[in-house]
Nucleic acid binder design. Structure first.
Lengths: 153, 153
DNA sequence: CACATTTGGTTAACTAGGAAACTGAAATTC
DNA sequence: GAATTTCAGTTTCCTAGTTAACCAAATGTG
């Protein structure tokens, strides 16, 4: 007959601790960028545009691991906030590309500074060596599990 | 004059990698428990009730790091799914307590098994020793930053 | 004891995202 | 070269949270 073990607790799972820290980091960052009038996904979106100059929404959806619908709304919001521009694509009348405008270009470095600060704030609980090891462990999981796409939520 | 450095990229932040792995773990777990008809927050909720027998919603909100409003709706949902019972509190006519019913009691171990499986699935990318070290690093951050409350989202 | 304050919980309005239906343009296929 | 299929993006409907207003019961204060 089967032994009747008690069900495992939440805390026995690595995923639990991971989520606890990850949520705290994200939440704290959300509060920081909120003061600049944007959300975390908007930051990821803008940061992607900063590098790429002109991006198709579909490309962005891919890269950010979000649905096309979400990207569509996200770009509406950023357009509304006057941070990005839309450009028609002459070769394909369905498609268009997105790009930062001047205000967007100016905002990204400020947000990046907040991201730096937030990260430092949390991970100074660890020694530089520990941080190094944590990064290595996480990247190893990402690699082995073939995870991809900027995490947003 | 100030050097004009390029803004840091997403990947330079530990929080980025953390969120990437954490999201993947949660998402995969969400798909698993979905087959048992519950969500991740419902699992956390039910698991808390399993230990405590009878819990006040406010207490649960505290423990799960969610708002009272969210707990209110969550308990509605679980009541609707016939997994929990409400008991009036004779000492305080505002308050009530929540408890698992028979079906809820039976479900929790099945969900726990899924949680075990999900965790194993992700972290077998690491050696037992690495897992140990990862747990230690995460707990150190939790401690130093005094994080609390079961992460849910 | 009356009245203000605090507390436990619900509700309403809002936000962000997902899934799937939909629209119009491009590419295939016969 | 007309008909179908695929593709880019938008829209609609739904879910699950948050915040803030709210209600009723309990507590406390003059």
């Amino acid at each position: 007959m089967k032994e009747n073990e008690p069900p495992s607790t939440l805390e026995t799972h690595l995923g639990y601790w991971l989520r606890m820290v990850s949520n705290a980091v994200s939440h704290s960052f959300a509060r920081k960028v909120e003061r600049e009038g944007v959300t975390v996904s908007e930051w990821v979106f803008l940061r992607a545009l900063y590098d790429a100059e002109r991006v198709q929404p579909s490309h962005l959806a891919e890269g950010m691991g979000m649905t096309k619908g979400a990207i569509s709304k996200l770009s509406d919001r950023l357009f509304e906030k006057s941070l990005i521009e839309r450009h028609a694509n002459p070769d394909d009348r369905r498609a268009h590309t997105l790009a930062l405008n001047a205000a967007g270009c100016e905002l990204v470095p400020r947000l990046a500074a907040l991201a730096d600060r937030n990260d430092a704030e949390f991970f100074d609980a660890l020694t530089p060596d520990e941080r190094q090891r944590l990064a290595k462990l996480l990247r190893k999981i990402v690699e082995k599990r073939e995870l991809a796409g900027a995490p947003v939520d």
